[in-house]
Design a protein around this nucleic acid. Structure first.
Length: 216
DNA sequence: GGGCCGATCAAG
DNA sequence: TTGATCGGCCCA
């Protein structure tokens, strides 16, 4: 769909900036295959989830309106919303939409493409490189990202986290869609996007378990 | 001021 | 299947 000229070259930084300022679904799709660099490690994003803003998406942190915690979501696009959950995990979001619209994209998984040694150090016990950034909290841990990176710009290139457009665009036919993970409200909506066939995608909960009833 | 729950992960 | 572990948010 996206006709980006210049051969196999992906979208420009400017194009990505524009994309993030718009509706969250195209923004989420456009974040696939982008690279994210922090703390000496670079990952290629393989799985993301879109979250709408106030009112329409019960699963969104901004659903109930603006609070001190989610204030970044209401700001300009292209900034990091980093939140802490389950008493131990950090997760990274890219703020989307214009100022006042609190949509965001949760970065769920990626493939480590640079800084492999550092990522392995940050995630001791991981046997397979595929698992280094497989899952939102793992992704943050591999990059060494925590709450301190919250509210910083991602596209400017001078912050703790640097987001760059993909080297090569993702073919639309290779993007898979499904329901979001661990979401109660709005679970029926198809707002999770990943690159089909990527081993780094956390597909273990891609759909409801279909285990047959023991006794019928 | 108190209690509950969460956009998770890893081990049994 | 369940424990770990703590900040945000709701209710009193």
């Amino acid at each position: 769909m996206a006709r980006v000229g210049r051969g196999a070259r992906g979208p420009s930084l400017k194009a990505l900036t524009t994309l993030l300022a718009g509706p969250v679904v195209p923004a989420a799709r456009g974040l696939l295959a982008c690279t994210l660099s922090a703390g000496g490690v670079t990952v290629r994003l393989t799985e993301v989830e879109a979250y709408e803003g106030v009112g329409e998406d019960p699963a969104s942190h901004a659903h109930r309106g603006r609070t001190r915690r989610n204030a970044v979501m209401f700001g300009p696009p292209g900034y990091a919303y980093v939140y802490f959950t389950y008493g131990m995990h950090w997760c990274i979001n890219v703020v989307c939409g214009p100022v006042g619209v609190a949509s965001a994209v949760l970065l769920r998984a990626g493939e480590v493409v640079a800084g492999l040694d550092i990522a392995r150090e940050r995630r001791p016990g991981v046997r397979v490189d595929r698992d280094l950034a497989r899952g939102p909290a793992r992704l943050s841990q591999a990059l060494g990202v925590d709450g301190r990176a919250g509210g910083t710009p991602l596209l400017r290139g001078d912050g703790p986290i640097v987001l760059r457009p993909p080297d090569a665009p993702v073919d639309a036919s290779s993007v898979a869609v499904g329901p979001r993970v661990g979401v109660n409200g709005g679970a029926d909506r198809q707002l999770r996007f990943w690159i089909a066939g990527e081993p780094t995608v956390s597909t273990y909960r891609s759909h409801v378990s279909r285990r047959p009833r023991p006794t019928g």
